[in-house]
Computed example of a mutant assay.
Amino acid sequence: MPRRSYDQYCAAARALDAVGDRWTLLIVRELLAGPRRYTDLHADLPGVSTDVLASRLKDMEREGIATRRRLPPPAPASVYELTPRGTALLPVLTALADWGTPAMGERRPTDALRAHWFAVPLARHLAGLGPRVVEVRMDEGVFHVRTDGGEPLYGDGPAEHPDARLTLDADTCVAIGGGLSLDHAVREGRARLETVSHGTPQEAPAGAGAQGQE
Rank of each mutant, 00 (worst) to 15 (best):
T147G: 08
L166G: 05
R22H: 10
G141A: 10
P84N: 05
W23Q: 04
R36Q: 15
L113G: 03
L82C: 03
H125E: 08
M60Q: 04
A103G: 08
D139M: 06
K58F: 06
R107E: 12
D139E: 14
D59K: 13
R36N: 00
G86L: 10
Y154V: 01
A77S: 09
L25S: 05
R146P: 00
T147M: 03
A119E: 07
L71H: 04
R22A: 11
A77R: 12
P73A: 11
G150A: 14
P73G: 07
V120R: 08
P102T: 13
G150S: 15
G128F: 04
T39G: 03
L166P: 01
Y154T: 03
F143A: 06
P91V: 10
F143I: 02
L26N: 15
A127H: 09
A77H: 06
T94P: 00
E61P: 00
R107A: 15
D98R: 15
A43K: 08
R85Y: 09
R108W: 05
G149S: 04
L32P: 06
L166D: 12
V120G: 02
D163C: 06
H161T: 13
V133A: 07
E106V: 12
D148Y: 08
P152S: 06
R108F: 00
Y80Q: 07
R108G: 11
W117C: 13
E81A: 11
E140P: 00
D156I: 11
L57H: 13
L89V: 08
V92W: 14
I27T: 06
T50S: 15
T50W: 03
E63D: 14
T24W: 05
L96C: 12
H116K: 01
G86P: 10
E160W: 02
I65A: 00
A123L: 02
L153Q: 03
G149M: 02
E140G: 04
A127K: 05
R114P: 00
T24E: 07
D98V: 14
P72T: 13
V133K: 01
A115R: 13
T39M: 01
L166S: 10
I27N: 02
Y80K: 00
A95Y: 03
V120E: 06
V52Q: 12
P121E: 05
P91R: 12
P131S: 12
T39D: 10
D51G: 11
G157Y: 03
E61W: 00
D40S: 14
V92A: 14
P74T: 11
R68N: 02
G100Q: 14
A112Y: 12
L57V: 11
A43T: 09
E30F: 01
I27V: 15
S49F: 06
G149E: 07
W117Q: 09
L89K: 02
A43W: 04
S49R: 06
A33D: 10
A77D: 12
E140Y: 07
L26C: 03
R107C: 07
L89H: 12
A112F: 13
R70D: 08
R132Q: 14
A43H: 08
E30A: 07
T110R: 08
D44E: 11
E135V: 10
T39C: 01
T67M: 14
S78L: 09
H161F: 08
V52G: 01
V48C: 08
T83Y: 07
R56K: 12
